[in-house]
Simulated scan of single mutants.
Amino acid sequence: MFHDLPVLRRLHGRPARLLRRWLALSLLFSGLVALFLPASARGTPGTATVVSARDLPAGALLRPGDLKLVDLPEDVRPQGALGQTVSAEGRLLVGAARAGEPLTDVRLLGAAIPGTGDPESSTVPVRLADAGIAELLRPGQRVDVVAAAEAGREASVLASAAVVTAVGEQEAAGTRSPKPGSKGPLVLLSLPSAIATRVAATSLERSITVTLR
């Protein structure tokens, strides 16, 4: 009869071990649920954060439909994240963004594109002297605007760090590789208003080109 005692002890201790394992698994599951719940569901107040409402390409001009607000807890909210959609509207996206990605200050160009609420800037259309250069430009890119040397005048920098807002199509249909020296498409540049006026006036009498940054 006594040789059955170890078996009884094992049977007696098994419920306790099962209970401890069940409690450990329950605590682990509860922690995982709390980790993936929204901040509001966990009882932790989130902070309003601007995220992209859809996939956006680099150089996109942000409009209200491209943005939305979500609440993010501070431990996952990136530094420099925007808290109001109006802070991003009318600005250019430096790099592509996936839907739901928080938008930070370094992902956007510093000022809103003219016509979307920035009274200090203007958009000026220029036709570059070389169509090949225009092909290299992309919205959101920064360039220096240069008046070409001609008629005894030296080349001069008209504006620094202008923002390319749009690049027009080539006028000649079917022309994929324009000849060197041929006139390029219209390029829209965002500049401070005073400088934009000077660039527009100079482009009427001198050839304009840009240097890439």
Rank of each mutant, 00 (worst) to 15 (best):
F2H: 10
I208E: 00
D130P: 04
A129I: 02
V50E: 01
G184N: 06
T47W: 05
Q79T: 15
G31Q: 07
P192K: 14
A161W: 10
P73G: 09
A41G: 04
A39S: 15
A162V: 06
R206F: 13
K183R: 14
P73N: 06
S30E: 07
A194G: 12
K68V: 11
V126A: 08
V51Q: 00
V51I: 11
L204W: 08
P38T: 08
A96N: 06
D66R: 01
A96W: 04
A112M: 04
D66S: 03
S177N: 12
L158D: 03
V163P: 03
R107P: 01
T211Q: 07
V50C: 01
G115K: 09
R77H: 08
L11I: 13
V143A: 05
G31W: 06
D4L: 12
V94N: 02
L27H: 05
T165E: 08
A34R: 11
A24V: 15
G46R: 08
V70W: 04
L137P: 02
T197F: 08
E205W: 08
Q84R: 15
L188W: 11
R138M: 12
R21G: 14
S182Q: 10
L28D: 02
G117W: 08
A194N: 10
Q170M: 13
D144C: 07
G117V: 04
S87P: 01
V187P: 02
G184L: 08
R127Q: 14
